[in-house]
């Protein structure tokens, strides 16, 4: 092992230790820790999105479909059968994977905007179904996670701290999956497709199958995070978990702002976007509800205009400026 990987590993270990210890610095019943929890969760979600969009260049705007499937699956299984959300999460993951497979079949040959629009439509169809199938989902009024005595087994806790560690663990797991995929043969295939689909095909990459594999992994993980969200929020409705703005676009935005295709990008993006959003909401909510969204939107556009490849690219640009020679 050379010195720079050693330093890198050390840095990551310190960072993780700080992340694990952070809740002790925050008011356990306060507002800040909830915002951080959401930031961790959204970082993980953006990382899932990063698997298809960042590695294969398939910009999905329908990931809310998998997220909602996860949230509803575990919650309904808990309500009707008292099933532990951990098991519900696995069932949700399977269903999320199946949904990803089914939507992939017709959309995989689409490129760019067409793929984005088709996936967007898929997410919207799921939202409409969840709203109209009241018998199953409770419809537009939403659904509550039934209260259980706090325990790890039921994924319910009295305080916010355990949720924090749960979200942190989820983020670490999803990030490790992302890194593992990127380094695997699958990752090479995805990169090859992203950089040059025809050249990939003529060296024998099964482009359709490769893209579907990535989509299924991403869909399964996203569904798992839907369960975490449900357990954390205790209440949700179709417009929230299947929402275009609330979930699909936000996942994409976070990854893009942070740096699409990089492992750290979604994390940086989430810790920029989520607190900013909360702050904007706070600042303007009393005066004009829509204004916060506007300000938020403008800020994001600003970031993207300044550096379309996100904070990660901005970082290396600054490093280069100071002559330390970051990777281009």
């Amino acid at each position: 092992m050379n010195r720079s990987t050693l330093l890198r590993g050390l840095g990551l270990a310190v960072l993780l230790a700080v992340a694990v210890a952070t809740p002790f610095l925050l008011d356990p019943r306060g507002y800040a820790i909830r915002v951080v929890c959401l930031a961790l969760l959204f970082a993980a979600m953006a990382q899932c999105w990063n698997i298809v969009a960042g590695l294969a260049n398939q910009v999905s705007l329908g990931h809310a479909a998998f997220f909602g499937i996860g949230a509803y699956t575990s919650t309904l299984l808990l309500i009707h059968f008292g099933l532990s959300p951990w098991l519900g999460m696995l069932v949700g993951a399977v269903l999320g994977g199946i949904a990803a497979f089914l939507i992939s079949l017709p959309t995989m040959r689409l490129k760019g905007h067409y793929f984005a629009l088709a996936t967007l439509a898929f997410g919207e169809v799921m939202r409409v179904i969840a709203n109209s199938w009241s018998g199953l989902t409770g419809g537009p009024v939403g659904i509550s996670v039934p209260f259980a005595p706090p325990s790890f087994a039921m994924m319910q806790f009295k305080e916010t701290r355990p949720y924090y560690w749960l979200m942190l663990a989820a983020l670490v797991v999803v990030t490790l999956v992302f890194v593992a995929i990127r380094r695997s043969k699958l990752g090479y295939r995805l990169r090859a497709i992203k950089e040059n689909a025809d050249a990939a095909e003529v060296i024998g990459v099964d482009t359709t199958r490769t893209k579907i594999t990535a989509a299924v992994i991403s869909g399964m993980l996203t569904a798992c995070l839907g369960t975490l969200y449900a357990q954390f929020q205790f209440f949700f409705d179709p417009d929230t978990v299947f929402g275009v703005a609330s979930i699909s676009v936000r996942m994409a935005m976070i990854a893009i702002v942070g740096g699409i295709g990089t492992a750290a990008g979604p994390i940086l993006g989430a810790f920029f976007v989520i607190p900013l959003e909360e702050f904007a909401n706070d600042l303007f909510s009393s005066r004009a509800a829509g204004l916060s969204q506007l300000v938020f939107g403008v800020l994001l556009i600003g970031v993207i205009l300044i550096e379309p490849r996100g904070f990660m690219a901005l970082g290396s640009r600054i490093r280069r400026l100071f002559g330390k020679g970051g990777r281009p």
Binding site: R191, A192, E195, N196
Partner: peptide, 11 residues
């Protein structure tokens, strides 16, 4: 070997 510079540029 396709027409044009069909390498994977970032690799």
């Amino acid at each position: 070997v396709p027409e044009g510079r069909h390498v994977f540029p970032d690799m």
